[in-house]
Amino acid sequence: MFKRYLTAIAAVLSLAGAGAAQAADISGAGATFPAPVYAKWAEAYQAQTGNRLNYQAIGSGGGIKQIGASTVDFGATDKPLKPDDLAAGGLAMFPTVIGGVVPVMNLPGIKAGEVKLTGPQLADIYRGVIKRWDDPLLAKTNPGVKLPAMPITVVHRSDGSGTSFVFTTYLSMKAAHWASEVGANDSVKWPTGLGGKGNDGVAAYVKQTPGAIGYVEYAYAKQNGMTYALMQNKAGKFVTPDAANFKAAAANANWKAAPGFYLLLLDQPGADAWPITAATFILVHTKQEDAAKGRNVLAFFDWCYKNGDAAAAQLDYVPLPAAVKDLVRASWSKVVSPDGKPVYK
């Protein structure tokens, strides 16, 4: 009997302890692309500090909506908000990790990295202008590669996605036709092709359709061993999609000249830079009603910047360059409590 009382008391005490810890818990919602690394960071952070992160991977658009409605402490998005939109929403934005979007194919007899593509070629394929793999336009950049006489099946994302935003923005940059006819958004009016739901949907369609081309996040292409294409970058070199080349793109980007960190890492200079590289972002309110909450959010990401690089690399993301992290930390001074003091230093 006495023992049972003790267990009951212990249970109550542990509940109280959990309640106390909850004060430092933070909640976020948004992009699915960085969700695995946020989960990994949150796990390590909780083990070290006892503070928990509750992150809902509901998509970038959802993240923007949720932080706008203040239902979460931070929002996450792959599609950066323009400085005007940030100001209008009273939001501050900063990048966390970098990743790449990779064109993947299903070509019988062709191995990963054998096919070389340029931005305009990719745009013409997605516009339905280049319809076959043995098109002379493709042969020009692929001397010596025996491209099959096969129709091209274009595969794109059917769901609105930050990945599509990055991809279509890149096509808009490289091809005037794409910019004027289709444009860049997280979902667009695709001129041709099939829509697969999510990275796995696109990957499944590509794998099942000989002659198909699609685009997926790098981690997805790598983990599934998909046949990727080399892309021509700004320096004119054909580069492989890998972490080192994403890093090169990030290193060459001019973050200082990007107000509110509105920066797409697309088509950056540098011999090794992968042309379809992108960062993913966090959104927080610049005016924090609850200073402690704001502090907890920034403390978490500061901790991630300090301790999270290895975990990010392990999951095939590229950590931010140290200089960019310092720029982000400096930008946090504008996240203030109601009395105008920065919430985190």
Partner: peptide, 16 residues
């Protein structure tokens, strides 16, 4: 093709 339900499922989360 697409259906009403599939269009909503695909795009609602990201429609800003």
């Amino acid at each position: 093709g697409s259906t009403i339900a599939s269009t909503i499922a695909n795009e609602f989360a990201e429609a800003t």
